[in-house]
Design a protein around this nucleic acid. Structure first.
Lengths: 215, 215
DNA sequence: ACCTGAACACCGTTCAAGT
DNA sequence: ACCTGAACACCGTTCAAGT
């Protein structure tokens, strides 16, 4: 049947985004998506081009969605940290699309609007040009590391590779007390905040060096 | 032919590691590996179990190989940073296996020996137990972020998604000067060092708080 | 114990053919 | 312009069968 299914490129992208959010990045196959849209597989190609193109569109679509989170705080450091945590927490909230973006090398696209907010706060704190770029890249590094560690799927890691097991082995160079602490569960959100904060504080002076108007 | 090929589990793992180092993680398929070993595909399964098991073994094998890099520096901060940079630089040196480990969720296994060295330096700097674990996790976050950004394959990122393009668009909130700096090429090794150093300095006091003998 | 040919259930992608 | 059936070249994995 189906001379025309009335499908839109946008419908395909939206369906793909829904699929990923509901069932994870692994569920996004061209055949599965076609089934969800009650259409034959090549139809997806007609609308979306290829899987890579589709994934890029999905990431762009989500990217547009989390543009606006309010930045809080009164000191420059607090505001930059707030903007940075917006990126971390927003990405965690949409962990499936974030994972997809990391796998497909489009993480920078996904994070761009959140990064703009960070850079804007850095400028408000008095950093511009090269200094601002360096600070923003360092902060992005910290956030990226935090995300990668926080988004690791524990169920995919076999028991023998888990920290508790890795550190239980007799590492002569490390005390038993520390080994025990390293084997225990970690509060990654808290460590993320501490780490990102350390990097922010390294680049942003405790007090703003200049004040900027709306221009 | 081939009643027996004289194949060993170890031969399979070694061949897999070679293959990954020569042609990247994408080249590691069971059929390709079988061809390299002049054997039929199911033979790989007989020796290695499954692809996941094989990848885990490959990562463990590489992990054993880069245990020993000398830690340099005289102050605690310098020594911790040196150990941390050993992990960053060692991973970059074996980027193909590092990528494979990240994809397969075995990054912690690969990095373990290098992490032991970092933890040992943290203890030498006077941090033990919970405090030591927190510091080491934060440092690992910074290193992980640095690695992910440094190992991104530029050729896989389409031109339109590259920083230069992302920042060229009129982001009203950011000055033109800063946009230009953000669009330019970055020295990721230098930024990695700065970022990791900022995190190390946050946890390790400028002077050691206690001295430890060889015991 | 060690190895193989053949098959199964998946992928992404293409293409001639239909309306 | 929009959609499909059928096929191609790949995957990981299994299994009966050989020596």
């Amino acid at each position: 049947m189906g001379k025309t299914a009335g499908l839109d490129r946008n419908d395909v992208v939206t369906a793909a985004l829904d699929l990923v959010e509901r069932e994870g990045p692994g569920a996004l196959t061209m055949r599965r998506l076609a089934t969800d849209l009650a259409v034959a597989t090549p139809t997806i190609y007609w609308h979306a081009g290829s899987r890579d193109e589709l994934v890029a569109e999905v990431v762009r679509a989500q990217s547009r969605r989390f543009a606006e989170r309010p930045v809080e705080g009164t000191t420059p450091r607090a505001r930059v940290l707030s903007a940075a945590m917006n990126m971390y927490l927003g990405s965690i909230e949409h962990r499936a699309i974030t994972s997809l973006a990391h796998q497909s090398g489009t993480a920078s696209v996904l994070a761009h609007p959140l990064e703009v907010a960070i850079v804007a706060e850095l400028e408000a704190a008095g950093l511009t040009g090269e200094a601002c770029a360096e600070a923003s890249r360092a902060i992005l590094m910290a956030i990226t590391g935090a995300l990668v560690l926080a988004l690791r799927d524990p169920s995919r890691i076999p028991a023998e590779h888990r920290p508790a097991n890795l550190w239980a082995g007799s590492d002569a160079a490390v005390s038993a007390e520390t080994r025990a602490a390293l084997g225990a569960e970690a509060d990654l959100d808290a460590i993320a905040r501490t780490t990102i904060s350390a990097v922010v504080d390294h680049f942003v002076p405790a007090r703003a060096r200049s004040r900027r108007g709306a221009a």
